[in-house]
Design a protein around this nucleic acid. Sequence first.
DNA 1: CTAATAGTGTCTATTAGACAGTATGTT
DNA 2: AACATACTGTCTAATAGACACTATTAG
Lengths: 245, 245
Amino acid sequence: MSSKNRAADPGEEEFLSQYHPEKYASISITVDAIVVGVAKNTTDNYRKLDRQSLKILLVKRDNYPYKGYYSLPGGFVGEKETFEDTLKRVLSDKTGLSDIYSEQLYTFGSVERDPRMRIVSCAYISLVDISRTNISGAEWFAVEEVSEMELAFDHNQIIEEALKRLRGKINYTDIVFHMMPKEFTISELQEVYELILGKKLLPAAFRRTISDKLEDTGKMTSNAGHRPSRIFRYKVLLQDMQGNN
Amino acid sequence: MSSKNRAADPGEEEFLSQYHPEKYASISITVDAIVVGVAKNTTDNYRKLDRQSLKILLVKRDNYPYKGYYSLPGGFVGEKETFEDTLKRVLSDKTGLSDIYSEQLYTFGSVERDPRMRIVSCAYISLVDISRTNISGAEWFAVEEVSEMELAFDHNQIIEEALKRLRGKINYTDIVFHMMPKEFTISELQEVYELILGKKLLPAAFRRTISDKLEDTGKMTSNAGHRPSRIFRYKVLLQDMQGNN
DNA sequence: CTAATAGTGTCTATTAGACAGTATGTT
DNA sequence: AACATACTGTCTAATAGACACTATTAG
């Protein structure tokens, strides 16, 4: 976005040639990623469905500060790097992920959040379909576990904010589908909504409202120990997929 | 929100004492404020109501770069300053405002947005009741005017995003009331909604839904050239007022 | 047959949209 | 009187909540 066609201004050119950035106070910026997905917890009872849970990717820090603590995958923004470039690099280096949906969450700037120096964190939420990814260098943790852990820096707080944002957006965007496998049942999808919203939904009403967004694959589940379920996929509605607001 | 009680770690203490921030790439950060309010445009026809319009505060730059251009009020974040502190300072110094509702909008970080060096802008939306403020050093511009102007840096784009955010939040938060005078008629309030949403609303439906949030002052308008209107104030509902996502 | 889930039908409650109709102060 | 706005009533449409009922498989 940009590089405008302003009229050339000799005064400004002169000014810029005399400008010495190093004289000014400067602050480091990191990008931290809250990578969220859902995974099934296999159960023993052949009749029961596998329950799903919300997962977040964390990396174990092997350097100071907070050596040995888990933290969000993150890294410093280079001088010629956009936040999105940094995010890509960090995700690739620390988790092995590429090409995943991401959006900026919030920028955390409290003065004491990093003991080294003033470091501001621009946090991004990334949503992935766990079944289609191979992770290296990072581990998945269930959100309930995470809230019991003491993470590095203010990362517990950042995760809280990320979950709030998800809760807020799930009902007026289609972002959930970034976390879903290509094909899924309505019950599975409903469970993901319930995990994010933190409450049970009524099946009849859920089916009614969600069905516009779904396309029947014609396939059915099998060997589930109970009535088989239709399998759907997300019907892309031309518009969204980028949850821009 | 900070300063945790971690166990002391001699290794970390050693590490920190050897840490030299100046070796690392660093980037400057500014906070820019999109200050939004509504003002009445007086009309000549004694019968007609004064129409309102959305206004934004801009300052004329008297230094390079973009000398002579209008821009959002903004300033550099000091090394020991939170974004909110910077925002307060900037608002006070450049516009004369203090104690106004603000929330972080988005952080703009494209590499070429400032010709001097890499400067990232953390943008805040601030909402004010124009009738209760005295501005010094900045001027109000109607949003339609602003979209015709070429502002400094990427500030046109930032304002676009801010208006989108307002549109998105107006219906599920009570943030509008930060822009309203203490007392107002329902028609005035409806017009503000219409300005932000960019569409007409039906009076009957608007009254129905908004009335829960309003308290009758018992007063009426007068000398309006037509039927007088009840005057209301915002009924604070214990909860919100802080439009926390 | 039974446990467990899938899926439908329907009644009710709530909310939004549409729009006509009534009310009232100012000149 | 007539203009401009204030405000109410009511019908309809759309949506959400509740819940009972039917359907279907593996074991």
